[in-house]
Amino acid sequence: MAKYAFFLGCIAPLRYPGIEKSTRVVFDRLGVELVDIQGASCCPAPGVIRAFNRTTWLAAAARNLALAEKMGLPIVTICNGCYGSLFEAADVLAKEPEQLAKVNDVLKTIGMEYKGTTKVYHFADVLYREVGIDKIKAAVTKPLSYGVAAFYGCHFLKPSSIKNIDDSENPHILDDLIEATGCKSLPRKQKTLCCGSGGGLKAAFGDVAKEFTKTNLENIQASGAQFIVDVCPFCHLQFDSAQKDLGFNIPVLHLSQLYGIAMGMSEDELGLSAHKVPVKL
């Protein structure tokens, strides 16, 4: 049975716990064991914390990586930001021995060491490559027929030179994962356009972030999609929280929640009450 160290991050457990719950239930149904990383912290966030102090970012990320290394398990994340941060930190520490040595000097102060071996995966990549579309289809107990908008976000696939998951300009993985439930992933303009919230933009220049979101929502509305399906709680937060001001009303689901619905989880279990845009199934 496949087994992963489950990295929660910040936005999922602390703003949309339904995403955490759905992931736990769905992975269990698919025969993938998720083990909590006791005492993990923020990844830390790549667009803000890494931009403030890269040494802090690398050392705090290494602590999270070291906790999983001690468990002997690869990490799975449910957030593009956590994935971007931990994957890139692991990549730097695997390729640059002098950085690893510097980080271990810091970790020594708390009696820890990172050997540089932890692998980091995005949950959608695990679903696609390890579980597979056939097994997902077999686990669907309530086939769906919604037309939806697949929202990839940025840090799931990019930078593709180190991630090598899918074509970053014309991806298909998430569309395939969505269609395994019976839903139709609808084509639209500028499908890979950023939600707008990354890089500290949402916090410092919220109106600029919303301009990105607005273009996305216009394109999604024109496609006729009934739901937005994302793979990142931060994109999820941006779409869910910005729509009222922007005059849109398209419900937002994390892929784990869409799978939860297709696998017969009740609406209560999906945590939909935390959503600002009401989700009516």
Partner: peptide, 19 residues
């Protein structure tokens, strides 16, 4: 400097692979 959303579109398309 703070208006970049770190979307990596520029990195994907840069013909000189500047990170």
């Amino acid at each position: 400097l703070w208006e970049c959303s770190t979307c990596y579109t520029c990195v994907e398309r840069c013909p000189r692979q500047v990170p």
